[in-house]
Design a protein around this nucleic acid. Sequence first.
DNA 1: TGGCAGGTGTCTT
DNA 2: AAGACACCTGCC
Length: 286
Amino acid sequence: MKKLELKQFDLEQIADSGQCFRWTRIMEDETGDAASDKESEKIKYRIIAFGKILNIEQDMTSGIVTMDCSDADFDNIWKDYFDLDTDYGKIIDRIPEDDSYLKRAASGCDGIRIIRQDPWETLITFIISQRKNIPAIKASVEKICKAAGSVIGEADGEKLYAFPTPEQLSSLSMDDLNACSLGYRAQYIYKAARAAFDGAVDLDKWKSLGDEDLFDKLCSLYGVGKKVANCTMLFGFYRLDSFPIDVWMNKIQDKYYPEGFPIEAYRPYGGVMQQYMFAYERSIDS
DNA sequence: TGGCAGGTGTCTT
DNA sequence: AAGACACCTGCC
């Protein structure tokens, strides 16, 4: 069990930011010993990543985060996963006063961090994400995990699955993939899995590439364009300057940056700024 | 019921 | 080089 007092860390903001698709909100059951949790409201999630299950909660009043994990798993996995060595306060402080929109966005969404995910899982989940909303993405991801991933635990009588390795995913036929509600993306996943399994695509090796070369490599994959490549770089390869442009960012640029967003001014944290703007604009839209 | 959801490949100018 | 267009699927 790890209890942490963290700055710039808000579980709900991160969960809603659309970076990760295997976070499940855990609601308190109405029956049983609910009384003990009444006074202090807690937000709880179950996260599956890197073949592990993490139950995590945050006290809404104190902000204190509790992770149900061993010291070893915290040191080896979760500390990096949540990017805890990065001071997001400092990154936010770099935003100049005259960029009032970005100032506002960052202060409204300052609990967001870049979650450092597994490159392979990030690539596949963002291929799936195209032209889908977040619930639909999650549903497809869970289906492929169930179809091909290893069982790593159980909750409420349901088995929990790791994200499938390239080998496991490439064992699925087109019919299997079509059963995962992937639509026209099934062929993209099929090809990517085979390429990763037979070694034609080696994401581990790609880690050593510079940003531009990595971007080109990702875009060379069938079904991967600029948007998916940038998301994969930002969340799967921790390239903080990657700047995914989607329909929301297009709206934001039209509204607030008619000359285009001055990404040069925000190097090397353009992608972090993108996350603040994306989350903020969505929050005020609803 | 048609339009849309964090796009991309393909075909057309 | 840039712009239309189709595309699976689920949801309102």
